[in-house]
Amino acid sequence: MALRSRAIAKAHRLAVRYSVILTRVAFLGLLLLPLLEPNSFYITRAGRVASPPDVELHARSEIGTAAPEIAPGVTAEADQPPSAADVESPSTDGKVPTLPPADMPTPLLPAQPAEPNASPAESAGPDGKPLPPSKQATVPWTDTEIAEAKAECGRLLANITAVTEELPPAREGICGAPAPRELRSVGESKVKFEPPATLNCPMIAGLATWINDKLQPAAQQSFGSPIARVIGASYSCRNRYGLARAPLSEHALMDAVDIAAFVLADGKVIRVSKGWGPTTAQLKRAAAKASEPPTVNKVKGEKLLVSASKLGANDIAKHGEDKPKSPEAEKEAAAKLALSSFLHHAHDSACEIFGTVLGPDANDAHHDHFHLDMKVRRQQRSLCE
């Protein structure tokens, strides 16, 4: 027992001594820490010193040139369901209201491009960094290319009612088009584009068909008023999403347009950001948070059910046994459903005409606009998300 007691006492003294030493070393290290250079500690593996990874920062491009394929932007209400106040009432003076700059499409860098298999631009400057599209060397349009593009415009626009202005061949680095036009309005009712869109003729013909044949009947049926204006952005000499290492955007070829809102003849504004309803990603996040399966209808053709689920029909089912809603609440729900149904119809009908259609369900970058272009793909007819 005596030997055991002495051993325990000796172990205790050693523990106290080493504890004091470690405390002093740690304290000394804290005193020296401010004097060390940043990033002085690296992780060593297999005899090598691994330096910290470089962080690439991407600045947002200005909307003055055009929203990225991505574009229209981030707002505080992006993750909130739309309310009745999101739909403007008709103006009292008979004039069509103008959307404030905050409602124009704004750029957003998404987690991944629409086509992840595409290769980035290969041109690089002397420092090894990729050159922007406007700085990359190329050759001017040939007379043959210009003549063929103008002949195509004659064929495509012969039976299209549109007010356009022919522009000279445009070449900005590798951007531009041989026969661009400025689109000001389409249709007999002269649906205006604000600002006027700089596009090639296939896009102009596609927009005219989409608006006249698909949107105008749907707007008249849903709201009792035709579309008077389209708010969006078009040409922008940049890569996709404005990234340095990404394929060239269709916006750079005057082959794409981003649409953020429609303005009806009675003054009502239909914004994609506020009328679409919760996106598929938002529904999945909400379902995961509530430990419930997401309310997403995958059956094609049942657009009404899709719109209803995105507008809170799941809430109606959840509270189905509650007392009936007031007339005001029912009217508000009907208005939301009409907005969502119209926008979903606009998106789905665009997939029948354009090569690429990206909307709020595509990714967070497109939560507040439709991206439309005429890109031709080999392996698939179109990209519709």
Rank of each mutant, 00 (worst) to 15 (best):
P81W: 02
P52L: 03
P38D: 00
P107M: 00
V49D: 01
P97R: 02
D86L: 00
D54C: 03
V49R: 15
L57K: 15
E69V: 09
S61K: 14
T106H: 15
P90C: 01
A67K: 12
S83F: 01
R45P: 07
S89Q: 13
E88S: 13
P68H: 05
A102Y: 11
A66C: 14
P107V: 00
P53I: 02
D93Q: 08
T106V: 04
L36H: 02
E77L: 05
A46L: 09
A66N: 15
A85H: 10
P38N: 00
T106G: 14
S61A: 12
A76V: 06
P101A: 02
R48L: 09
R48W: 05
D79L: 04
V87W: 10
L99W: 06
T98E: 15
T44A: 06
A46E: 15
E77K: 03
E88V: 04
S40F: 15
V96H: 07
P52F: 00
K95T: 10
M104R: 15
T44R: 08
H58F: 05
D93R: 07
P97S: 03
I43K: 10
T106A: 10
T75A: 07
R60E: 15
Y42I: 06
P105C: 03
L35N: 03
G94V: 06
G64I: 04
E37H: 06
F41C: 05
P97C: 03
V55S: 12
T106K: 14
L108C: 06
A46N: 14
A50K: 07
A59N: 15
I63W: 12
M104H: 15
E77S: 05
E69K: 02
T98F: 06
P34G: 01
S91F: 02
P81E: 02
L35F: 12
V55H: 13
A76C: 03
P101N: 04
V74P: 09
A71L: 11
L32F: 11
P38L: 00
A102M: 11
S40L: 12
A78M: 12
P72N: 06
P81Y: 02
E69M: 08
E69G: 07
Q80V: 02
P53Q: 09
R45D: 11
E77R: 07
E56I: 14
L57Y: 15
A102F: 10
A85V: 04
L35D: 01
T65F: 13
P107G: 00
T92S: 10
V74R: 14
D93K: 07
S51Y: 07
T44S: 08
S40D: 12
N39M: 08
L35W: 10
T106C: 05
G47T: 04
R45E: 14
V87F: 12
R45H: 14
D54I: 01
P53K: 07
A66Y: 12
P90T: 03
P53E: 11
R48E: 13
A46F: 09
V49T: 13
L33E: 02
D93E: 07
Q80T: 05
L33Q: 10
P53L: 08
P72S: 07
G47H: 01
P34H: 01
T98P: 09
E56L: 12
T65I: 09
T106S: 11
F41P: 00
E62R: 13
D54W: 01
T44E: 13
P53D: 10
T75Y: 08
L99H: 04
P68Y: 04
F41S: 08
P68E: 00
S91W: 05
